[in-house]
Amino acid sequence: MAIQGPIAIGFDQVFPHGCYVVGEVEPVKDFDASTNGRFVQARDKTAGEPVWQIAVMDADPTVKAAQKTVAVKILSPVQPVPPASLPDSPFVPVEFDGMTATPYVGQNTGRLAWSIRARAMRAPRAAAAPAKQAPAGKEVAA
């Protein structure tokens, strides 16, 4: 099979309705290297960079409640900082760049699951302004 390793995927394919921060950025534990008294942060096997993770909530209204929260792992030499919250809102929208998805079989469920990774986290880009309506027969530049 030609596909080996993570599959490059766009943010809009993973979160077509967007997503929101619901947790803190945390280092991912390397379970093989860590011991009872010593925490060792995981490093990406290919890039060698430290791995961080953040919990986000999928804004897709059709996703079941139990599947709404997803951990996104971020490869970064320094701890990533989430974007600022929106004024007058408890929600922090976020987007990820350089995303990949790696399929695996969940140990507890025996079902196909996906590990989502990203290279960067940022505030969403502003949506394009809607075109202004003009009287019939005339065009208006937005």
Results as ranks from 00 to 15, higher is better:
A2H: 11
I3P: 04
Q4K: 15
Q4W: 13
Q4T: 12
I7A: 11
A8G: 09
A8E: 11
I9D: 04
G10M: 13
G10L: 10
D12Q: 15
V14Q: 06
H17Q: 11
G18V: 05
G18F: 12
Y20Q: 14
V22N: 05
G23R: 01
E24A: 15
E24T: 12
V25K: 06
D30M: 02
F31G: 00
D32V: 13
D32I: 12
A33L: 15
T35R: 07
T35L: 03
N36D: 14
F39Q: 02
V40P: 02
Q41A: 10
D44I: 03
D44Y: 08
D44F: 05
D44M: 07
T46P: 00
G48D: 02
V51W: 03
W52T: 04
A55M: 12
M57P: 01
D60A: 13
P61G: 07
P61W: 00
T62N: 13
V63T: 15
V70H: 03
A71H: 12
I74V: 15
I74K: 06
S76T: 04
P77W: 06
V78S: 10
Q79D: 04
P80D: 02
V81C: 04
V81W: 06
P83S: 10
P83Q: 13
A84V: 06
A84T: 08
L86K: 15
P87Y: 14
S89P: 01
S89N: 13
S89K: 12
P90H: 13
F91K: 14
V94Y: 08
V94L: 06
V94P: 00
F96R: 01
D97V: 12
T100M: 05
T100C: 06
T100E: 01
A101H: 02
A101I: 05
T102M: 05
P103R: 01
Y104S: 08
V105Q: 14
Q107E: 09
T109H: 04
L112T: 08
A113D: 07
S115M: 07
I116G: 00
R117A: 12
A118R: 01
A120M: 00
A123M: 00
A123Y: 08
P124T: 04
P124D: 01
R125E: 04
A126Y: 07
A126T: 03
A127V: 07
A127L: 03
P130N: 05
A131I: 02
K132V: 06
K132E: 08
A134R: 05
E139G: 09
V140W: 11
A141M: 13
A141C: 03
